[in-house]
Design a binder for these strands. Sequence first.
DNA 1: AAAGAAGGCAACCGCAGTGTC
DNA 2: TGACACTGCGGTTGCCTTCTT
Length: 287
Amino acid sequence: MGRQPCCDKLGVKRGPWTAEEDRKLMGFILGNAGRCCWRAVPKLAGLLRCGKSCRLRWTNYLRPDLKRGLLTDDEERLVVDLHAKLGNRWSKIAAKLPGRTDNEIKNHWNTHIKKKLIKMGIDPVTHEPLEVRKQPLQASLSTTSTQSSTVTIECKSNNGQQCQQHDTYFNRDKDASLGDGESGPPELSGTNTNNTTSGNSGIHDQDPLVKWLLEEEDDLPTIGIVEEPWLDFTVANDVDKFNVIPSAMSWDIGATDWLLDYQDFGVGESSLLDDASIVDSSSESNL
DNA sequence: AAAGAAGGCAACCGCAGTGTC
DNA sequence: TGACACTGCGGTTGCCTTCTT
């Protein structure tokens, strides 16, 4: 159905965002949450960007709850496990890592994890050892699978060295990686019997991990997740807390949901802005 | 020290999904 | 019911930084 572009390309700025643009966008969103949609944001915020660009900038970079820096080992292992189950469904994977965006995880996968796996002799797509991959479909379905990578080791142990590496990589500190036992996905590295990666979610319907991944409840266990004072804006007037909390906060709701739902976000945003290092703390009233 | 290569990541593109009228 | 508006999402691109020679 003939969709219109999200914005007319004429007069719309593209490319890297400047600090000034960041400041305008963040200031506008923090001051006007719930009062408009993304399409209207650039106009109202005084930006020569399309709404989509604003949304991406916010969700991937400006969101105050975002973590910075490389993924930790724990996060990396969880990403690998989730990828084995879900394939390239980055948003689903990101949903399990508080403070991380799908884009960030995707980039990290492509630039770091993929290489690590290949180096270890593991196919980053199938999560199986590279040299023992091609087997009759029947056998494959009945004995191996996509599962979590650890199980692949058990099933494909005819390749001693590779499997050993695999095991070492994915099992080290496994318990710690998932928090205190209670917080990890059920049978995260347990006895799964499915096959493949992306596009086969149906196959995983009975898989506890997949069920866990696909659940929508807010109390999903995630790495480092904590209670979310961030979500209770009407209470958390002490926004200075945001300088400390962001890295541990989860963002299970969509950016737009946030825009539309938090109508009472009437807090001073100086701390948030400080956190993003884009304006000084005296800019509270710039809206 | 300089130039080229490689790596990393922010941003863009365009289709899919969903809600509304 | 279909058209449209909007956001979500995954793939890709291109620029900037870092590394290597």
